[in-house]
Each structure stands twice: as C-alpha cells, then as structure tokens.
Design a protein around this nucleic acid. Structure first.
Ligand code: MN
Ligand code: MN
Ligand code: MN
Ligand code: MN
Lengths: 222, 222
DNA sequence: GGGAATAATAAGGGCAACCTTATCTTAATC
DNA sequence: GATTAAGATAAGGTTGCCCTTATTATTCCC
C-alpha cells in the first residue's frame, strides 16, 4: 500500500492538513485559505481525498487525516524538508526561498531519491527552519515547544522553529531575526490582540500576535 | 522573454524535439511515439506550441523548434543533465535510473536552483551518459561523434555518449557495457539490418542496428 | 432561541491534456 | 497516375482541479 503516486494537488492538501493540525480536525475554510482555493473547491477535493481513504470528513466538523493520509503527508513533508536542507546547506540558497523551491521538488522525488538524499545529507533531524524531518515511514515527533504568541510577558525563550509557508510571512520573520536558535525576551504585549514587543539580540522588535503563532519556542531554562 | 513557466507537458514536447532533432524538422509520428501519445494528441499539442511561438509547424512536413523553443528546450535539457550528475555523483543512484528520476526533477527546478546546482557540481560539461550540458541560455554544441550504427566493420571506436530515453533501451545498453569511455571494435555486421557484432572489453556483444543508433562514438585514432 | 458565520450541496463552466473514431489530404513510391 | 502510408482535421469524450452563483444546513454564541 501507499505505492500509488499521488497528484501534486493531493500531496499539497495532505501536507497542508499536516501543517495545520497533525491529528485533530481541520476546518475546510482554513484548508481553503492555506491552499488559496475557494471553500467549494476545498470541499470537492476533500470528498475526493476521503474517497481515496486519505482523509476522514465529518460534515460541519472538519477533515482529519487517516493513518494512510498521515503517512503520505509525513512523507511529503520529509521530502520537502530534506530538499530544504540540501538547498540551504549545499546550494547556499537564501533562507527565505527554501520553502518555495523545496515545495516544487517535493512532488518530483521518487522514494529511492528521497532516501539517497537523506543519506547524502547525513540524515538530518530538522530542516533549516527548525522543523523536524519525518522518518521514511512518515512518522515524526512534533516539536516540544509552544507558539511565541502564548508566551507571557517577561519570559525569555529560545526559537525552536519557524513554521510558516507563506513567503511574506517567512520574509517578515527573517527580517526581524526570528530564526531557530535565537534567544528572545517578550518585553510587552499590547491589548486587543495587539503586537508583542520583543528583545531579539539587542534589538527591539514589534511582532503581530498572528505572526507570533508561527514562531515555535521553548522556555529558556536558566 | 522566456520567463513564463511552461507546463510539464510543454517542456517534455520541447525536450523530445531537441533530442530527436536539434534543428531540422521532426515528424509528428516520431514525436507522438517518443512521448507515448497518439498522433492526434501530438497534432493538437503541436498546434498549441506553435500558437505560443515555440515551434514552427509545416503541415505534412513536420515541426521544428523556433529560436525561442530551442532555448527553452536547451534549458530543460540543462536541468535534466545537471540533476543526472547530482543523482549519479552525489547520491550514487544507479546509472540506469538517472534519466527517469531527473526527468521528474527537471520540471520542478527554478532558474536560481538550476544555477546554484551547476555551481555546486563544478559546472560539469556532460551528464553521466556523456551528453553535453547546455549553457544557462539553452545553447550547446552537439557532440562531434557518429552513431555506432554507421561505423564500418573493422573499425575501433570510443563511446562518447548514450543518447537514449527509454528505460529498456538504457538498461539493455548498460548490460552490454556500452558506457561512455568504452572502447569498441565492430567485428561484423549482419545483412538486412541485422545486428552488429562488437568487441566490448574482451566481450563479444550482439547489438541490434536500431539500438546502435543510440550509441554515439568517435573513431578511435591510433 | 435567533442571528451570524461557516459549511455543504447543486448547477453550470473552464482549461489543459489526453483519448477514440472517422474522414479527408498530402507525399512518397513504383 | 494510382496506391499507400503518414498526417491533418472534425466531433465528441474523459479526468482532475479549479471557478462562480445560489441555496440549504449546521453550529456557535450572545
Ligand atoms: Mn509542494
Ligand atoms: Mn522547513
Ligand atoms: Mn521530464
Ligand atoms: Mn544524460
């Protein structure tokens, strides 16, 4: 099983679901937004995906990946993140372009190539954005961190990963020094969903709460 | 110009034309055969390609690449052959699989990635099959060799390149040791388009005349 | 409990690439 | 100059994935 090649579109739906929510249900609207299609189109596609047993759709509740779908999605993510490592470490491609370029390559990569690439790269555990690279069977342990948006004022944290796919978001975060490994102090939080004020490497940065959701951090012990 | 991204299908048609015939006209039937589509489909597609100015179609004569089409085709070939180098030299993928795997990747590769890959690989001049890698502008000088099928009995030649795309052909030639660099003596030629008999590294090999067309050789001086 | 937001469904279309079957045209050949 | 093979064209289909507009159903929340 899991040997039939999936279309690029199918792979992107599965990946989007995995990125939005590993296990729980994903609202059709969010899926549509992430993939830049209308809700009607997303509905149609989810129907096709559930006919293929990749997704379980509960009307008015949302869609969830099945075991089969989760494995397939993990595999797509694996391919993307391995390519990101290659593009970054070997080809010296800009950090902000990695996601986009790897997002094309991921659909054109045979299993044998994927595994040879992993070996070539030394079986990296995370991509250049800090996200974990799933195993060959599609499984992986999510990061043990929380979104920056949930950190309370006064705390110091370390960036584990940047988990964004929209180019503008990636560029925005990059420009503000929000990269894996960086130490950050949350110095203020504006009311009414206003921006956070951060201390990033001796630099004061304002960051919208929504944008902070994409930054996964761990509390900086000591 | 030449900035619009072409569809995978379009790129494959252009590449097939370049592989079949760099400059002259290509018969629609051959194109259809190479791409595994019906002649009707090839006709339709050639019409679309000529509407885009990539191809010049002369009814009942055949189709030829325009300057624009030749550049685009050269670029596809460049991407493929660079990936073949990577897959072979770095990932250690089997020689017989290179064409197929690179044929997927070629359509998913942005110009920036292509050029970074070329630099990473040290700007190779030929692919692992011995074929020249076009420049970034799509231009390249064809090999200065002749098909093995045109060599006369008694001559000794050196293999410059294997220029096949069908997997079975590639495997067949590989099994018989017909790889770039090999020295070959043509010891006999059967009548009525029968097979050639070759001396390949102390081994006697029979090779169909049709298959010999894919092996590009140079006369072995001295 | 009613209204708003979200989701689902129905109906009708579009586009790129493919397909089959049938008819007609041209080129090549003897 | 007639035959034949190859090519062109016409007509009608299919599949995947997308769209709009309209209607209906459900859930959520004040
Ligand atoms: Mn992708
Ligand atoms: Mn990444
Ligand atoms: Mn290809
Ligand atoms: Mn090659």
């Amino acid at each position: 099983m899991t040997i039939q090649p999936l279309s690029e579109s199918t792979e992107m739906y599965l990946k989007a679901m995995a990125e939005l929510n590993q296990h729980e249900t994903v609202a059709i609207g969010r899926l549509a937004g992430r993939l830049n299609v209308t809700a009607v189109s997303a509905n149609e596609m989810v129907r096709r995906l559930s006919e293929q047993g990749l997704v379980k759709h509960t009307p008015y509740k949302g869609a969830a990946l099945t075991k089969k779908g989760r494995e397939a999605a993990g595999n797509v993510v694996r391919r993307q993140r391995l390519w990101e490592c290659f593009l970054h470490d070997q080809l010296k491609i800009e950090w902000t372009q990695l996601y986009e370029y790897a997002c094309s390559l991921e659909h054109a990569t045979a299993p044998e190539v994927t595994e040879a690439l992993a070996v070539f790269l030394g079986s990296p555990k995370t991509c250049p954005h800090g996200n974990p690279i799933p195993a060959a069977d599609g499984s992986f342990t999510p990061l043990n961190g929380i979104p920056l948006s949930e950190v309370s004022v006064g705390q110091t944290v370390r960036v584990l990963a940047v988990n964004a796919s929209a180019k503008e978001v990636i560029v925005h975060l990059h420009e503000r020094g929000l990269l894996p490994g960086r130490k950050i102090k949350v110095t203020a939080a504006a009311p009414l969903q206003g921006p956070l004020t951060l201390q990033v490497e001796n630099r004061e940065v304002a960051l919208g709460l929504h944008l902070a959701e994409f930054v996964i951090v761990e509390i900086h012990s000591k």
